[in-house]
Design a protein around this nucleic acid. Structure first.
Length: 154
DNA sequence: GCCAACGTTGGC
DNA sequence: GCCAACGTTGGC
């Protein structure tokens, strides 16, 4: 199985690439995914050693800010049954957690972020889900060609 | 802060 | 199973 590529969104006010970089072991459990399409990507397709772009969303400068690596298999997201968590899901229970997560590890932070505007201006990326209008998917696949195109934009 | 786009919920 | 109402996402 060749390596796969992803893009994962996070609001930098909540969790930024610097937070990941400064974490113990530069690793974090990517919890709180509450969208079925995104969950299914994690559950069914994500593999250890896949690479993922770290995307800052809902902020002053939406942009791809770096790269991380998937370092665990999918496992149940226990914040779904933690009543104190903002990700608590009343329809999940300890024997039926509806949501999964993976651990990610920091790989690198770009010296210059690749902004959403730049991505939109790139003709090779017009089919990329991120730049399409109304896209709200928080985890999406990136093709090898798209990955290389984006890496080469720096 | 606004609002378009989208996902989810629930009555029927 | 339809679809209106509602909540959320996320760019601007």
């Amino acid at each position: 199985m060749p390596k796969q590529y992803w893009l994962m969104k996070s609001e930098p006010d909540e969790f930024s690439i610097d937070d990941l970089k400064n974490n113990k072991n530069q690793t974090e459990g990517w919890e709180g995914i509450r969208n079925y399409q995104a969950r299914n990507f994690i559950r069914d397709d994500m593999k250890i050693n896949d690479l993922a772009f770290f995307y800052h969303s809902n902020c002053k400068q939406p942009a791809i800010v770096g790269v991380m690596k998937i370092v665990s298999k999918p496992y149940p997201d226990k914040t779904a049954i933690d009543k104190k968590s903002k990700y608590y899901d009343e329809k999940s229970s300890s024997d039926n957690i509806r949501w999964v997560m993976v651990d990610v590890k920091f790989v690198k932070k770009f010296a210059q972020p690749i902004t959403l505007q730049e991505l939109k201006e790139c003709p090779e990326l017009e089919d990329f889900a991120l730049v399409r209008k109304g896209n709200r998917l928080s985890i999406m696949p990136v093709t090898p060609l798209q990955y290389q195109t984006i890496i080469d934009m720096k």
